[in-house]
Amino acid sequence: MKYFLLCMLLLPVMRSEAQELYIYTEPASNIPAKSISAKLSANYAEGMRGESKGLVQRYRPEMYMGLSKNFMLRASGTFANMHTSAFKFESASLYGKYRFLSKDEAHRHFRMAAFADASVSKAPFRYDEIALMGNKTGAEAGVIATQLINKLAISGTVSHVQVLDKSRFEDAPLNLPYQAMNYFLSAGYLLFPRKYEDYRQTNFNIYTEILAQQTLDTKRYYVDMAPGVQFIFNSNSKLNLGYRFQLGSDMNRMARSSVQLSFERTFFGAL
């Protein structure tokens, strides 16, 4: 009974935000206050490892904590064989997001948030692409803006990332990228249900995301596209499937395309 009442209270929130639960990026909205979400993501690609090409994989367990309606934390780690022949622990990271602007109306809202991320990785520094999800030790900070209009949600993210690898602080640092700007544009649309009648209805969302990066020291770039689909079950569980592929780049990258599968379960009121 307690769970049912909680879902009834949260249903208007989940209705309006379902289509902005993006697969590859974060929206300006947070998970519900006093709630916890557990997520497991799997990433598969045909990548370079040494001189050979083959299937590489990475698994990322994450824990989200909604400390208030405006502030959330995320702790995560990665296990992979993307940089080594052995599958093993790769990295740990801590992410925080603060929503500082909310303009909410019926069937629409505009929100902005600031975020910071820090990661420690055991992976070797091999590729130009700067990503804190397992690949690099570093820090990132940025701003997110998300606009929801009925069943369409569009979000943009701009962030600055710094690599803190030990090679950067040597007397003769290598000619590697240590800082970059990220530019992300995400769109999500709620296809089903056409009309909400019960919190147990399955949601079906479709997404398209543009992910771009420009390094500031070596002046290299990439632009990727990432379409995906999402199912939300019982208003508390999400199943995501996305395919990311390169549109253009002059970087030395591990892979030009990858598939991501993830599942997330939210525990409302757990805190």
Rank of each mutant, 00 (worst) to 15 (best):
Q162V: 03
A153D: 13
S186V: 04
N70G: 02
A118M: 06
A75F: 07
M112K: 03
S93R: 04
L191D: 12
Y64A: 02
A75N: 10
Y178A: 11
R168Y: 13
L191M: 07
V143M: 10
T137M: 00
R108A: 09
M133S: 10
F87W: 13
G156F: 01
N150M: 12
K166L: 06
R111H: 11
Y95H: 13
L190H: 15
G138T: 03
Q162R: 14
Y189S: 14
V158I: 15
A180K: 00
A187H: 08
G156Q: 07
A141C: 08
I130A: 04
I149Q: 14
S155L: 07
D117M: 00
A106T: 13
F100H: 04
F110C: 14
N135T: 10
L164E: 05
T146W: 02
L174Y: 14
T137N: 01
R168E: 06
A131S: 15
H160R: 15
G134Y: 00
N70A: 11
L191N: 06
S121C: 04
K136D: 03
K151Y: 14
F169H: 09
G96W: 00
R111C: 03
F87G: 12
A92R: 00
L94T: 06
T137C: 01
Y64P: 02
D165L: 11
S159A: 08
S85F: 06
K103G: 10
E170W: 10
F71D: 12
R111I: 07
P173Q: 05
K69P: 07
S91M: 00
D165R: 14
R99W: 07
A131N: 15
A113T: 12
K166I: 08
A114V: 06
H109Y: 15
E105T: 11
S93T: 03
R108E: 12
R108H: 09
A92D: 07
A145K: 13
D165E: 12
R126D: 09
G66Y: 02
G77I: 01
K97C: 05
N150I: 09
I144P: 04
K122R: 07
I154W: 10
G96P: 02
F115K: 00
E129F: 10
H107K: 15
L101N: 12
H83M: 01
S85Y: 05
S85T: 05
T78D: 00
R111F: 10
L94K: 01
N182D: 13
I130E: 02
D117I: 01
V161R: 08
A139M: 15
K97F: 00
N81L: 06
A75K: 10
T146R: 04
H83V: 05
G138N: 11
G77N: 03
L190S: 15
N182A: 05
P177R: 03
G156K: 04
D117Q: 04
M82Y: 09
S159P: 01
Y183P: 03
L148T: 12
Y64L: 09
L190D: 14
I149R: 15
